[in-house]
Amino acid sequence: MDYNWNWAVLFQEPYLGWLLSGLQWTLLVAIAAWVIAFVVGSAVGILRTVPNRLVRTLAAAYVELFRNIPLLVQLFVWYFVVPELLPEDLGLWVKRDMPNPEYVTAVVALGAYTAARVAEQVRSGIQTIGKDLVNAGLAIGLTPLQNYLYIRLPISYRIIVPPLTSEFLTIFKNSSLALTIGVLELTAQARQIENYTFQGFEAFTAATVLYLVITLLVVLLMRLIDQKTRIPGSVGAN
């Protein structure tokens, strides 16, 4: 193998700056998208468990739609197609005046996509609660809504912290797709450094290490949340 090692390139300007700015965009895309995914996903997941059949079906349709189309295709649809479908004024605004359109689009697309996956976790969390525990809430006179608020959701969310961890990790990885519409996040910057310096090994190693660090931090954070919220006596609790 014929290769000139040069690890120093990673600490030279402008390349160090590129990496750090890439890292920043990765975090900005992933975290903003997670907020959307969590809110929308919770709503959709809850709606999948309500008595009304039409509502349940619509929520299920959301999940199937967003789960069965590759994220890349969804991203392009949001970026190239949706502005055309909007009412004229809004469409024009999105195309001409919306600040940072690539970033906003990436966040919305990634958020909507991940919401479908979060919804599945939320639904399964709600459905693992036994029928009689739900009845117990109703039996003391809680309304169905109160029963969701005080019994079913608090229990579900505590159960699903571990599977949500994996979705949260995935969103950082999936944020790399934003590069296809021009967001210069971490993977894009590593590629760019390779193109400029031909030091692909160093550039990709740097990106890999940074993703590993993100993973480690997310896992630690979620473990902390899990310990703080876990229902005493449930599997794995101490």
Partner: peptide, 24 residues
């Protein structure tokens, strides 16, 4: 754990760069 921590796109870039280098 390493492969599960990094994006697929990065892996694609890695091997797009690495494979020709290794094979020569």
């Amino acid at each position: 754990n390493i492969f599960r921590s990094i994006p697929l796109i990065l892996v694609i870039f890695w091997f797009y760069f690495l494979v020709p280098l290794l094979i020569g």
